[in-house]
Design a protein around this nucleic acid. Sequence first.
DNA 1: CTGGGTTCGACCGGGTGGTCTAAGAATAGG
DNA 2: CCTATTCTTAGACCACCCGGTCGAACCCAG
Lengths: 212, 212
Amino acid sequence: MPLPRFEKLDEARKHSILDAAAQEIAEHGFDGASYNRVIERAGISKGAMYYYFADKDDLFQTVVEGCLAQWLGEIGFPFEADDAKAFWAACHTMYERSLRFMLRDPRNAALTFDIARATGPSAKHPIVQAHHDRLRAFVDALAEQGRGVEAVRTDLPRDLLVETLLSLLETGDRWLADRWDDAMDDEDVTATATLIVGLLKRVAAPDGESSR
Amino acid sequence: MPLPRFEKLDEARKHSILDAAAQEIAEHGFDGASYNRVIERAGISKGAMYYYFADKDDLFQTVVEGCLAQWLGEIGFPFEADDAKAFWAACHTMYERSLRFMLRDPRNAALTFDIARATGPSAKHPIVQAHHDRLRAFVDALAEQGRGVEAVRTDLPRDLLVETLLSLLETGDRWLADRWDDAMDDEDVTATATLIVGLLKRVAAPDGESSR
DNA sequence: CTGGGTTCGACCGGGTGGTCTAAGAATAGG
DNA sequence: CCTATTCTTAGACCACCCGGTCGAACCCAG
């Protein structure tokens, strides 16, 4: 976490620093992100940056955790669902909220998934690991709730299901990010959510209940 | 491609260089891979390396293309399939071959997918792009063949289906790589293939035909 | 002995994360 | 109002690593 001094800064300044970092990570990936470039972007001096953050990891951890927390706050989990139908409807709503968040704040939303699916060297980085664990725990809890109302199959290794769902979510996001024309209306969002949640359902629903 | 001199080297030497490079990429990712470390690993001098390869990209492109070519050669595509059942059976066989290749030569097989799913900066790299395009073309051709025998749905945007299948394949591979105890017998391979191809089927098969 | 294919490693410019000193800004006390 | 002390900023500097260059040395055939 940042040194206590950082909290005393005015909001605008804090935000501009964290935003510069988020932008850097979004552009160059977690591994490729350069502390020097963040400093340049934020328009402050090296001395100042090290006055507020202990080191590179300190800053990046703050950014990554902030993004994830915001995303989790946006989508509205946990929710109540008494049967399978209600469960999947709630999933649909959650995915819509996630999409809207992504359209509103592409950088933050994309970061959440980009970091989660990191491979190679960055995958071993503690910050990335922690992020991955938290996101996986969320999907796991979601699947568990689904199992409770027989909306989610139980015949698949639990971790395989979780990994699959995560990768599906991420693929949907990325597919969307690649071809949205930033003029998506409510109808488009709903349609896309139906598409992606439909895929999730096919994978996760018990046998014979995959059709809609 | 390597300078012509490289081809004149004895097989052992060639292999040891390419292998050192593959190992480096596998360990540090495409972006994180260091030419200097490859040189060190291969146990030759910098001068020698630059005598055989024009530059870093030249070497890495050679390695990546080699891996993909080997993988495509292993799995046995294209194949013949007159109906949906035969199509999915063939997919199962292909996936089994892919698994066996992966168990036999984990580095090469993993590379193929690791590079394909690269995000961030490396995703823009021409070598990675070319790799991604080739792999996507393969999945696309596969899906097209499936559509021809009504084994694959047509109600999904084509590119979304391709991306989804790719990410599913990759997730399966990674899931497997994480927890295999390198003492997998034929039975395990078949069971795993059934599991993963089952997921592919759920996603890709037309409505009402996802059950087995 | 010569000459060309091959190998070696010192060296280059540039970028990295991180340190540190010294000057500037602000705040306190008299 | 002036000074003394603390908080904050600035950027030169460090060691290290990167990919790439290059001239000298080596080896072996002619």
